[in-house]
Design a protein around this nucleic acid. Structure first.
Length: 596
RNA sequence: GGUUCCGUAGCUCAACUGGAUAGAGCAACUGCCUUCUAAGCAGUAGGUUAAAGGUUCGAGUCCUUUCGGAAUCACCA
């Protein structure tokens, strides 16, 4: 039983006995005591003064007395400042609570019945991944890890946007200017090769458009009238009709892209349980439109277009099918939602998509709710902010994107030069050293992107690249490496980290108690991160743990300790911290090294 | 223009969902390696939480207004 739960129960009992008031354990909220005050947990009494019929300060004092007398094995002392009751925990209670934290699976929750689907990444197959995708992928992967640590059965899904006019643009440019170039012949990674032709299309189109505007045509008009654009449209029609030559070019180019993506995903350390392709799903959803008309959720205009009236929900009318009977984006999203549910019977469905689509998902979920879909209430749009550069927004056409492959490579290189500068790779083979650079570089990058609240826009400055000191991935990784060295030495000395000799310890250093208190928060932090879909909660937590351990490391000597029980305790504590760091970083998708 | 989100130290971010004197890291400045890894530790300095009102024991957090920024509002995806 956790210390905080014991305290909550004791306070509930105090209310009953002292004030004849029923207060449930859930209502009794404890917070960690601020560092400036004596104690570990604080109970705020203001809102309970009504029940005690005493002022907040007196209420705190009376409860404090009660706890000290009735639960002396936990509460060693207390003090009251205004309405804040600060509780000092007995060292022996900390040690006892620590025992459960040494278990292998500590922190992870028992399996739940519910199934959750997390859709993330969802790239277009016409250009390589960039910095924005990195945030998306790291978020999606991390949230999946966190949800499964919380006990859900998680399915990771990638819905690939592999068709449409934008794909035809790069196909057309390749056909016109490619001269049979392939990834093999050019040595260019498949996704980058395709991206090159997407950019080329845009350049050529611009030429045509400016030629037309010089002849006096409006720019909007010129974009539609440009021959290249018309050709791309025609190509899309041929693709939709299944014309062999077009389809086989499409397949060929997509294969190159997938080869490139697979390499990038592998480097990123993310994966998927299932892929959906829009080329298979883009026609779905039309039957839902007719179903909606029957149910009175949609209505048909004279021109044949179909709309959803969302004015009651505080929104506008929304088109769900064009007048010519073809789909819009939301049509296929309705169909895909049904398909996902049919395939996996999920209870919750998380869409990791940028916040520029807030409105779209709001509408989608409302429509599915009105259609009476049972899964609608379990849908959630995990909306995240843009990653901005100091120069502003990234624009692929203007070449201001930070490419994912390039960025990761830079991080590896930076990790390498840092490590060499510090002279820390003696005894490493080349393979091990290279592995370390990847672990550190990727750790720095992932941690950097995940420590920020997903909802917020964030700034990425490539100039003063990502730090390796302070609140960073490598800082946490370094702490793990330090502990690993301790554990190796302990093993040599024959000290068993798994033994229970520490139970005899009844006097702790302050920083040791702090560490146990922090470790005690781990299950709660996983819960919080899972319920809020917020890896940043885990990142912040793991940082706090590492920070506290480094203080312990500096202040308390382990192997110079004479008392065998205390020595064994410090080794066991170190092991538990290392394990928590490893598990916590694992939830972020970050590996931790044994040495660095 | 409507809707939604955001504004916290010079910079990048926190703040347990309304709690104590708003905390970390970077950058700057002081100390600490013959000891378990200095990618570390300890410390100094840095704030009218964009502004003004309101709600209450108590507001960075909730409400109103103003200022500034972003996204979105397509028979695009």
């Amino acid at each position: 039983m956790t210390i905080s739960f014991q305290i909550q129960q004791a306070i509930a009992a105090a209310f009953k006995e002292l004030f004849e008031a029923e207060v449930s354990v859930d209502e009794i909220k404890l917070q960690p005591t601020r560092k400036d005050f004596e104690g570990s947990f604080t109970f705020v009494t203001f809102q309970f003064a009504r029940m005690s019929r005493k002022n907040p300060e007196e209420t705190g004092r009376v409860i404090g007395e009660y706890l000290k007398n009735n639960a002396p094995e936990v509460i060693a002392d207390f003090n009251v400042v205004k309405g804040f009751l600060n509780l000092v925990i007995a060292d022996s209670a900390w040690v006892k609570a620590f025992e459960s934290m040494t278990e292998e699976n500590y922190g992870f929750h028992a399996p739940k019945k519910e199934k959750v689907m997390v859709e993330y990444s969802s790239p277009n197959t016409n250009k390589p991944l960039h910095l924005g995708h990195l945030r998306n992928n790291f978020l999606g992967y991390s949230v999946s890890q966190i949800l499964s640590a919380y006990g859900y059965n998680v399915t990771k899904v990638n819905l690939v946007n592999d068709r449409g006019i934008h794909i035809c643009k790069s196909m057309l440019a390749y056909q016109k200017f490619g001269e049979g170039e392939t990834p093999q012949s050019s040595g260019i990674k498949g996704d980058h090769l395709i991206g090159k032709y997407y950019v080329r299309f845009d350049q050529e189109l611009k030429k045509e458009v400016s030629a037309l505007t010089e002849q006096g045509m409006e720019e909007e008009q010129a974009k539609k009238e440009a021959p290249l654009m018309k050709e791309a449209q025609a190509m899309l029609k041929r693709w939709e009709s299944g014309e062999d030559a077009t389809v086989s070019l499409w397949k060929q180019m997509n294969d190159w892209v997938y080869e490139g993506f697979d390499a990038t995903y592998k480097t990123m350390g993310v994966d998927f349980d299932h892929y959906y392709y829009e080329s298979n799903t883009y026609l779905l959803g039309k039957d839902i439109v007719s179903e909606g008309i029957d149910k009175g959720v949609f209505y048909k205009k004279d021109d044949g277009s179909v709309w959803a009236d969302l004015t009651e929900e505080g929104q506008d009318h929304k088109l769900v099918l064009r007048g010519d009977g073809t789909s819009v984006y939301i049509t296929q999203d309705m169909g895909t939602a049904d398909l996902k549910f049919k395939d996996f019977q999920v209870d919750k469905s998380i869409y990791v998509v940028g916040n520029e689509q807030d409105y779209h998902f709001d509408v989608l979920f409302k429509i599915l709710g009105k259609l009476g879909r049972p899964y609608a209430k379990g849908m959630f749009h995990l909306s995240y902010g843009m990653v901005d550069l100091p120069s502003g927004k990234m624009k692929s056409r203007e070449g201001t994107v930070v490419d994912a492959d390039d960025l990761m490579q830079e991080m590896f290189d930076t990790a390498e030069s840092h490590t060499k500068e510090l002279g820390k790779i003696e005894g490493f083979t080349d393979v091990q050293a290279k592995e370390l650079y990847r672990t550190l570089g990727l750790g720095a990058l992932k941690y950097f992107l995940l420590k920020v609240d997903p909802k917020k826009r964030m700034l990425f400055n490539p100039e003063d690249s990502i730090q390796f000191q302070g609140n960073t991935g490598p800082f946490v990784q370094y702490t793990h490496a330090r502990i690993s060295a301790i554990l190796r030495k302990a093993e040599q000395l024959g000290i068993d980290a798994h033994a229970k000799a520490f139970l005899n310890v009844n006097k702790l250093e302050k920083t040791e108690a702090e560490l146990i208190q922090l470790l005690g928060e781990f299950p709660e932090k996983i819960k919080e991160a899972a319920e809020d879909y917020a890896p940043s909660v885990i990142a912040q937590y793991v940082y706090d743990v590492a920070k506290e351990y480094n203080r312990f490391y500096a202040e308390v000597s382990i192997f110079a300790e004479k008392d065998e029980n205390a020595l064994q305790f410090r080794v066991a504590l170190s092991k538990a911290v290392a394990s928590t760091i490893r598990k916590g970083m694992g939830l972020l998708g970050v590996d931790v090294p044994e040495r660095m």
